[in-house]
């Protein structure tokens, strides 16, 4: 069964890398392997296959960390805390990756590395939350206290995310797809008409995109499985000594 997932991941990742990088981007796609041109994005559109999955995994990792945190609070099983912390550690890695790929993309499409667009703000907050989570963990020495308080902190910090994900993008002006902009004619805030912001993926791009999401999610679970098993082994071997 394990070998099955590994081979599946190998195939999917190969498909995603080839499918993301090889197909030419043309103005009027005729063949199924050609991506349509998006004005203002051109070849830079390809990074979407790698940027969005990292951002998605950042959020998924946080949810898993919180889920196992709550489970720890209920059952007081230290292995749940290990699962929680290894999920968060990987989440931090993907959070950094999402920030870096995003700001590289921003540099070449919007002109500078950082814009304080609502989505950029929210990934920044997530980065801060992850940072604070690990800072808190390192400041607590007893194992039980560390597990308990970091689980509680992850719950409290999670409560702010609806504000960033659902509310602020509707109150602020942004650059990501689905954002608002100021209508130059009337000065009112409206749904954006900019081709980059309005952009919808073509069907063939969407296939690669969802393959990429699946592949990255499997990759994440594999990493996570390895890291929390390593933590468990370390813990057990220390107990034996």
């Amino acid at each position: 069964m394990r070998a099955f997932w590994k081979y599946l991941l190998l195939i999917l990742m190969t498909l995603v890398i080839l499918g993301g990088l090889i197909p030419p981007i043309v103005a009027y796609p005729k063949n199924f392997f050609e991506f349509p041109l998006i004005p203002g994005l051109e070849d830079k559109a390809r990074i979407i296959f790698f940027h969005v999955p990292t951002a998605w995994l950042t959020v998924l990792a946080y949810l898993i960390a919180m889920f196992y945190g709550i489970r720890y609070l209920k059952k007081k099983n230290i292995y749940d805390d290990m699962k929680s912390v290894s999920a968060a550690a990987l989440g931090l890695v993907f959070c950094i990756l999402a920030t870096v790929t995003g700001s590289v993309w921003a540099k070449f499409t919007w002109g500078s590395f950082w814009h304080w667009d609502p989505r950029e703000t929210s990934i920044f907050i997530l980065l801060l939350i992850y940072g604070a989570y690990f800072a808190l963990r390192s400041a607590l020495d007893s194992e039980e206290k560390r597990a308990r308080l970091s689980a509680i902190y992850s719950i409290i910090a999670f409560l702010t995310t609806p504000f960033f994900i659902f509310i602020m993008p509707r109150l602020m002006i942004g650059l990501h797809p689905g954002s608002l902009e100021i209508d130059p004619a009337t000065g009112q805030i409206r749904a954006s008409a900019n081709p980059v912001i309005k952009f919808q993926m073509a069907a063939n791009m969407r296939v690669v995109f969802f393959l990429s999401l699946t592949a990255f999610t499997i990759l994440y679970f594999w990493f996570w499985n390895l890291t929390h098993r390593i933590l468990k082994l370390e813990y057990n071997s220390q107990k034996e000594i």
Binding site: L128, A132, A135, Y153, I156, A157, T160, F164, I167, M168
Partner: peptide, 9 residues
Amino acid sequence: VLAFPVLLP
């Protein structure tokens, strides 16, 4: 450090 992300919104 802990309070900032929570208070930011």
